[in-house]
Computed example of a mutant assay.
Amino acid sequence: MKHAFERITGAAFLPAQLRGGVVAIGNFDGVHRGHQAVLERALAEARRRDVPALVLSFEPHPRTVFQPDIPLYVITPPPMKARLIAELGFAALVQQPFDREFAGQSAEEFVTHILDEGLGISHAVTGFDFHFGKNRQGGPAFLMEAGERHGFGVTLVDAFRDEGAEVVSSSRIRILLEQGEVAEAAGLLGYRYTVEAEVVRGKQLGRELGFPTANMALPENTGLKHGIYAVRLRRADGTLHDGVASFGRRPTVDDNGAPLLETFVFDFSGDLYGERCAISFFGFLRGEVKFDGLDALIVQMKRDETEARALLSGARPLSDLDRRLTFAAG
């Protein structure tokens, strides 16, 4: 049963035609290979039943509610998470607002108000360690028993392990990205790490140096290592362009600046200002360096361009999702 993808804020706003579906439940930050194992089971179950496939996640990330003083590097902010869920083939992503009041409801209230009355689900799919309700009182056994009472089935999916037999987790991926290991992170994500933002007007210094850049301000909690990366830019119209990007504070020209993502797009002369673009990271080239003047910076930027072009020319899709995100023009 095919539906146009919808991003919905809260179970109470689910359209009638999407009730009775199969729902994958979890936070899914990163939508990594472990999450995809859960999501693929939900899609398969929905196809078998010929009902809509939905994802239920929670925004903001529950950890930011329970530990507000500890910054959390969110791998996939809500818009990016929605895009990935849509690419996988779901009918809708329900992003349930999460606050202290919501967290204080009992496990039975969650099942009754969200899964039964709100979404009217026919089946739930979740990870084997999913807990919910006040003080995490609801677990897999509770969910299965509640499903029998409320009339929906439950599928639990075991932890997904990588080729080294380690569990794939959002925490592992955050650490890799904080170290600049974007190629290794892609192996766990199943696609190239991607960010989206509006292109904003900068100081035009790159244009003066012969390297005009598309500048983007990323969320404050972005923990990606500062440095130079080989990247691919996707425009709003779906066209793809290779480039080299700097993420950081630009120490040679602006020591005190806020972190900024600046992408030099190869062989491109158009205007991107005001356009929301996606940047996918293929490889880390080097860390940030403060050069002795602009001439030395220009020499290094030319080397960065050569290295990035070589890296990107040999890149291949990691998965069907990666192909759609970073290889197939829209």
Score class of each variant (00 low, 15 high):
237 D>E: 02
245 A>S: 11
235 R>C: 15
241 H>M: 11
277 C>W: 03
227 G>R: 06
293 G>I: 03
265 V>S: 03
241 H>P: 08
289 V>Q: 15
283 G>K: 13
289 V>R: 15
271 D>H: 07
226 H>R: 14
243 G>Y: 10
297 L>H: 02
283 G>P: 04
287 G>F: 09
259 P>T: 08
274 G>C: 10
246 S>M: 12
263 T>N: 01
292 D>E: 15
261 L>E: 01
225 K>V: 12
286 R>K: 05
229 Y>E: 07
295 D>A: 15
293 G>Y: 06
233 L>D: 03
245 A>D: 03
251 P>L: 07
267 D>E: 13
236 A>D: 14
237 D>M: 06
269 S>M: 13
238 G>P: 01
239 T>G: 12
222 T>Y: 02
293 G>T: 05
298 I>N: 11
239 T>M: 03
253 V>R: 10
225 K>A: 15
233 L>F: 00
254 D>K: 03
274 G>D: 07
289 V>I: 15
247 F>W: 05
251 P>R: 10
285 L>H: 00
289 V>F: 13
250 R>T: 08
231 V>P: 02
262 E>D: 11
298 I>D: 08
292 D>H: 12
237 D>V: 09
252 T>C: 05
263 T>P: 06
264 F>L: 12
260 L>K: 04
256 N>V: 11
270 G>I: 09
251 P>V: 06
292 D>Y: 08
286 R>W: 09
287 G>Q: 12
228 I>P: 05
277 C>G: 05
290 K>I: 04
236 A>L: 12
227 G>Q: 03
292 D>C: 09
271 D>F: 05
295 D>I: 13
230 A>W: 04
235 R>G: 14
240 L>Y: 06
242 D>L: 03
283 G>T: 09
270 G>D: 15
274 G>F: 07
238 G>V: 03
262 E>L: 02
281 F>R: 06
248 G>Y: 01
290 K>T: 09
225 K>D: 09
298 I>Y: 11
